[in-house]
């Protein structure tokens, strides 16, 4: 590694370490305000700052916990919007897209950062048209790339369709873009072949017990019974990948 590059790498590492430490301490100090019995307005200010700090540290669950403790009766309109924004981002980062959209619908602040997060949340809620127009208005310089990206926006895979296709392996796997298709497919076809072959041979017990067991294990227990879970995973994975790409374009 060249000396300059080594120096830069070490500097970035040290800077990040000290920043994380400083922010962690900052979050603790906001909690201390509450420990000392702050007024509702002070407590709200401390909790909002703490939540912002924790989000920057990637501690989204702790941030949501801080937001849950806000004294809603004394929350100003401006702070309410800020808390919606912070909560929406925490939910987005933890994969709770529906919850994040709910926060957005309650209102976000009007600044650029909140609008940028709103574009992400709208996309995560599959409101692609709204997300695109907001993203383009914020970052017109990336308009072409954004248009191109939104043309490839992930379509929600339907559980019913995946279920139907799963009866003929590996169509269900292909539909869900699941690369672990080989084992189940081979076992299903082996089970079906064994059943038919043994029936033809007149070995009815072997056909029913042997082929039936194999078919049941591969077809029912894995291929079909896991469809709801695999559909959800496929949708989540596709959305995460799309949001990653979108986020990389939402910058100056």
């Amino acid at each position: 590694m060249k000396p300059l590059r080594l120096f830069c790498t070490i500097s970035i590492f040290l800077c990040a370490t000290f920043t994380v430490r400083a922010q962690s301490l900052e979050a603790v100090e906001y909690e201390r305000v509450l420990f000392h019995g702050a007024s509702p307005a002070e407590a709200n200010a401390a909790l909002l700052s703490r939540a912002a700090c924790l989000e920057q540290l990637g501690r989204y669950d702790d941030a949501q916990d801080a937001l849950d403790r806000l004294r809603l009766f004394s929350l100003s309109a401006e702070d309410r919007l800020r808390s919606n924004h912070l909560r929406g981002v925490a939910m987005l980062r933890t994969g709770n897209y529906q919850g994040a959209a709910g926060c957005l619908d309650e209102g976000f602040p009007q600044d650029k950062e909140a609008s940028r997060d709103a574009a992400l949340i709208l996309a995560s809620d599959r409101r692609f048209d709204e997300s695109l127009s907001l993203a383009v208005s914020l970052y017109p310089q990336h308009s072409d790339e954004l248009q191109k990206l939104f043309k490839k926006a992930p379509k929600a895979r339907k559980e019913g369709a995946a279920m139907m296709l799963s009866f003929l392996p590996p169509l269900g796997h292909i539909y869900l873009k699941d690369d672990k298709w080989l084992g189940t497919t081979l076992a299903s076809y082996a089970g079906a072949a064994l059943t038919v072959w043994q029936f033809i041979e007149g070995n009815y017990i072997t056909a029913i017990l042997g082929g039936g067991m194999l078919l049941n294990a591969s077809y029912m227990e894995h291929n079909i019974a896991t469809v709801p879970q695999r559909t959800q995973q496929a949708n989540q994975k596709a959305m995460e990948s799309f949001l990653d790409k979108l986020e990389s374009l939402l910058c100056d």
């Binding site: 989000e55 990637g58 986020e247 910058c251």
Partner: peptide, 20 residues
Amino acid sequence: MRNSRIGMAGRAHLKPVTIN
């Protein structure tokens, strides 16, 4: 830079940073 704010480790990717 994707984001110039300091301490944005958790925001750079959609997956949260796990602290060991």
